[in-house]
């Protein structure tokens, strides 16, 4: 039942996205609060993931004498899967719950009603801007996350294996192909869309009372995370099909 409502919500989003007036200022404001304000968190997580991934893989690769494969291996796994997924999950936690709670409390305190009576379409002003912002900012955050994670991995290799910056990144880009980066980027847009849509959906239709706000924020995160994995799963299939073509 909820999926049906969410589908309807999504259709409504796509209907209103292209309809005037565009709330450009609010969109920029949301971009800032979604993009810039999450950068630090995404950066730290990415950096740690890069470090940990490299440190954990190192002994195994060493056993096979294949430590020189580290850049290719880490590069591909971060760009294809770990970067987008970790960034999206972190953002689901930060942005998804934030949007859920914000819109939820706006609903509960009748701010959304107030907007509507003052002639502003709250769906456009609140939902469209936020969903657009997440859809465009998450891919950017993923790029930052990837870059920082790779840098973290490089640091480990540099300190433990004395690998130069040029060599490390040369090997990373040697192993990467458009078949890695294109699906990952497309996927990131859908991740952003999912985070924004679910957060807004949960907040916009928040139940009355402060408990309702809590539930909205919480279920936004849970539902988004689940959705992210499903999208990821589908993305793998779709990417495979495109590869075969």
């Amino acid at each position: 039942m909820e999926i049906g409502e969410l589908t309807y919500f999504t259709i409504r989003f796509f209907k209103e996205v292209f309809r005037r007036p565009y709330e450009f200022k609010e969109f920029l404001r949301q971009c800032y609060s979604i993009g810039n304000r999450s950068l630090l968190l995404v950066g730290i997580t990415g950096f740690i993931i890069g470090l940990v991934l490299t440190l954990q893989t190192r002994p195994t690769l060493m056993e096979f004498g294949a430590v020189s494969w580290m850049p290719s291996m880490v590069g591909i796994s971060i760009v294809r899967e770990i970067g987008p997924m970790i960034t999206a999950l972190v953002c689901a936690g930060k942005i998804g719950s934030g949007i859920g709670a914000e819109l939820g409390s706006m609903r509960v305190t009748e701010q959304i009603d107030a907007m509507e009576v003052s002639g502003t379409n709250p769906f456009k002003y609140l939902v469209v801007t936020r969903v657009m912002a997440t859809t465009l900012m998450i891919p950017l955050l993923v790029i930052f996350g990837d870059a920082i994670a790779l840098y973290g991995s490089y640091l480990v290799e540099h300190l433990k294996g004395d690998v130069s910056f040029a060599l490390y990144f040369n090997q990373v880009f040697d192993s990467l192909e458009f078949g890695d980066i294109v699906p990952a980027t497309v996927k990131s847009f859908f991740f952003g869309l999912a985070i924004g849509l679910v957060g807004c959906f949960k907040g916009y239709y928040c139940k009355k009372g402060t408990a309702g706000v809590g539930i909205a924020a919480n279920s936004a995160v849970v539902f988004t995370s689940l959705l992210l994995f499903i999208i990821d799963f589908i993305a793998v299939f779709v990417a495979d099909i495109f590869y075969d073509l």
Partner: peptide, 20 residues
């Protein structure tokens, strides 16, 4: 700051695409 964020992000992406 938003502008910087977007510009740096896109530059990184374009750079990656170019290198690949």
């Amino acid at each position: 700051r938003l502008g910087l964020f977007v510009i740096i992000g896109t530059t990184l992406f374009v750079l990656a695409v170019y290198l690949i």
